[in-house]
């Protein structure tokens, strides 16, 4: 078994792992009960899936064609920077516009605090 065969196997495993991760997290979209838990599936597993696929591609081009593509690494970096922000914004705006938590939820420590915050804001805007 020569080097290129080993590299090919590694790349295949990585790309396959990434694909399976993406598939499973899209399964999560269907199965999970509400938007908040769905955002978990959207941010975590998908990010890792993309990491695996792009890293596999990077290794393939590096060893097979001697091509170091910085753009692929930058792609990973930007996905890592943007995916959590997007997830955070989606659930934050969902909560503020009153989307309910699923019935199985056991705890909500934000509701009262947010009410207080809004009352404070209204109070201040009246004063000003």
């Amino acid at each position: 078994m020569n080097v290129s065969a080993i590299i090919e196997i590694i790349v295949a495993v990585m790309v396959l792992a990434g694909t399976v991760l993406s598939l499973l997290s899209s399964l999560g979209f269907i199965r999970l009960p509400d938007i908040y838990t769905r955002s978990h599936a959207a941010t975590k597993s998908v990010t890792l899936g993309i990491l695996f696929i792009l890293l596999g591609t990077f290794i393939y081009f590096w060893f097979m064609h001697g091509l170091i593509s910085i753009r692929l690494l930058l792609g990973i970096l930007f996905v890592f920077l943007t995916a959590p922000v997007a997830g955070h914004l989606v659930i934050r705006s969902a909560y503020r516009s009153g989307v309910k938590l699923s019935d199985t939820s056991v705890k909500d420590e934000l509701r009262d605090d947010l009410k207080k915050m809004k009352q404070l804001e209204q109070y201040h805007s009246k004063e000003g």
Partner: peptide, 26 residues
């Protein structure tokens, strides 16, 4: 931590009966 978290989430998703208690805490 990222690898661990993905495994945890996938473990939850692929369970035949969904058994989670989501919530918000400070």
């Amino acid at each position: 931590e990222l690898v661990k978290s993905s495994l945890v989430v996938i473990g939850q998703i692929t369970r035949p009966k969904l058994n989670i208690q989501p919530g918000i805490f400070k």
